[in-house]
């Protein structure tokens, strides 16, 4: 029984980071209908940024989020403006963007491999090695911090979307791009901003992952597989869906990992993706219409 609860704790701790990883991707899809297959590559990029800052200036990866998040925000704004802004009306936009973002992921992977080589990296702040014990249970300090920060950021994003003028405009654009234009929302501007916010979330996720996991340039492939499954399971473009599926799958994968072995835990994600496609292609919280 203790074991069962312990696994649940670890699963939930990881679920927070997964939710942060998938929230940015789902936001970008929701507003722009772009399946950003480079999302995890941007996360890896941010992890390397945190790693670089940690190695060179010895700045804690949590502290350096104040740097990685704005940098990734800017990267997002420039990337969207440069490649996508003028093409949003193209009827083949969805297909094109999937491939373009995937190609972007390859470019990022190649550049990172060229600069940092393929060696496994991680940042090693002091809390990366200790655990907190409470009664018979424990949680690695790094995962606890990652969970707390992820939740703070996600709640922050939710409040921003709910209670600010710009947040409302983002939600409006997600629900009906045409109508948003009609009431005077500048959707191009909102899209650019959303892409920036999405990548800022990726930046935060990268910083946190840099001390939770080891990473290498090609790591983005495994991560994008996972994030995609979370986003599809939750329903493309649904923030709540991404959140729920993150905690659900993280916990499920933790149990599978314990009972069947580590090799099977990624398979949990892919199998759940195909199961949801089989029984509810629009995802848990998605809408029937899908582009």
């Amino acid at each position: 029984m203790i074991q069962v609860i312990q696994i649940l704790i670890l699963g939930i701790a990881l679920g927070g980071v997964y939710a942060l990883m998938s929230s940015g991707m789902t936001l970008i899809f929701g507003v722009m209908r772009i399946v950003n297959l480079a999302h995890s590559a941007f996360i890896v990029l941010a992890a390397y940024l945190a790693f670089f800052v940690f190695k060179t200036f010895n700045i804690d990866p949590i502290v350096s989020m104040a740097f990685t998040m704005p940098v990734m925000f800017l990267v997002g704004v420039i990337y969207y403006r440069l490649l996508f802004a003028s093409r949003a009306d193209n009827p083949r936009f969805a297909d094109i963007t999937v491939l373009v973002t995937f190609a972007t992921a390859l470019v990022i992977e190649g550049i990172l491999a060229f600069i940092f080589t393929g060696i496994y990296r991680s940042t090693t702040p002091t809390y990366a090695k200790t655990s907190i014990n409470f009664g018979p249970f424990f949680i690695p300090q790094s995962q606890l911090y990652a969970l707390i920060i992820s939740i703070v950021l996600i709640v922050g994003l939710w409040m921003f979307m709910r209670y600010t003028r710009i947040g409302n405009a983002i939600r409006a654009t997600m629900q009906n791009r045409n109508a948003a234009q009609v009431v005077g929302v500048n959707v191009t501007w909102i899209s650019t901003l959303s892409f920036g916010i999405g990548l800022a979330m990726a930046g935060a996720a990268g910083s946190l992952l840099s001390f939770v996991f080891t990473f290498y340039p090609a790591k983005h492939i495994a991560w994008i597989g996972m994030i995609m499954c979370l986003v599809v399971l939750g329903g493309m473009g649904s923030l709540v869906g991404a959140l729920v599926s993150s905690f659900l799958l993280a916990t499920a994968a933790a149990y599978v990992n314990f009972y069947f072995g580590a090799a099977w835990s990624p398979i949990t994600f892919y199998l759940s993706l195909f199961l949801i496609l089989l029984f509810r292609p629009q995802g848990l919280f998605g809408k029937k219409v899908e582009g």
Binding site: Q175, N176, N178, A179
Partner: peptide, 13 residues
């Protein structure tokens, strides 16, 4: 102001 033909409301608001 303009009211489009498909009403264009925000369905989940």
């Amino acid at each position: 102001c303009y009211v489009p033909s498909d009403r264009s409301l925000f369905p989940d608001m």
